[in-house]
Nucleic acid binder design. Structure first.
Lengths: 114, 114
DNA sequence: TATTTCCATCGCAAAAGTACGATGGATGTT
DNA sequence: AACATCCATCGTACTTTTGCGATGGAAATA
């Protein structure tokens, strides 16, 4: 009961953003995405070779990125080729951009909780 | 030994980004930051009133946001006034902006792992 | 001083995350 | 067919996260 946050208690945007942020919340997954972004590493083996974790751990991280929709895998026998999901990537970019918009002026009047 | 990722295995940027993303990886914390961003809710009580979780849970989330550097608290007896850490906010904006830069063209030659 | 308000922390329980080695299936090679 | 390669999944162990109620301390009020 603890962590499957009851749907409806937060907005879709909040849940979307949190979902993506959570997927980005580990340096290995950041590193994987950066490698995929450069399009120089697209295979599990390539990624494993450049990451300081075991192959099975890489698989797990790839799965989490896939579950969050940020990447997709295409079977390219005998390997699986991973790519960034461009649509989702743009969506993530948009969500974070909107979230990190400029704050109201620090010295605005009525700035807080009067 | 499990989760304190050995320093040095990932770049500072990767660790910074993952640290912030992790803090954003829960809808309650997104909601808290949005409320602080609007500067209409700055106190623990205000936040708790608008969130679907218990007061002690709000405190925990506030602590995590503070640990990640995204917010700061200022003692304003008998309450604590929370504000977004503007420096850190800009830093986060920059990091995510750089990360979500436009991808190379999908159909670029030599796109991947030849 | 006694009482109330505010909220941080503690202690608990349940769930999820992280990492690894081992297993096994699918594909390609000999 | 026998073997090797690639990698997803399983099983395990440990840590972290999440959430809550309860406790307690600090500040304002009576």
């Amino acid at each position: 009961m603890a962590h499957i946050v009851d749907l409806g208690k937060y907005t879709d945007q909040q849940q979307q953003l949190a979902r993506i942020a959570k997927a980005l919340g580990h340096p290995a997954r950041i590193a994987i995405l950066e490698l995929l972004e450069q399009q120089t590493h697209c295979y599990h083996g390539d990624l494993t070779a450049d990451l300081p974790i075991a192959a099975s751990s890489v698989s797990q991280h790839l799965n989490e990125l896939k579950d969050a929709g940020l990447i997709q895998g295409e079977f390219n026998p005998p390997k699986v080729k991973y790519c960034i999901n461009r649509e989702r990537w743009q969506e993530a970019k948009r969500l974070f951009g909107a979230f990190f918009q400029d704050l109201p002026d620090e010295n605005a009047e009525a700035s807080c909780c009067d």
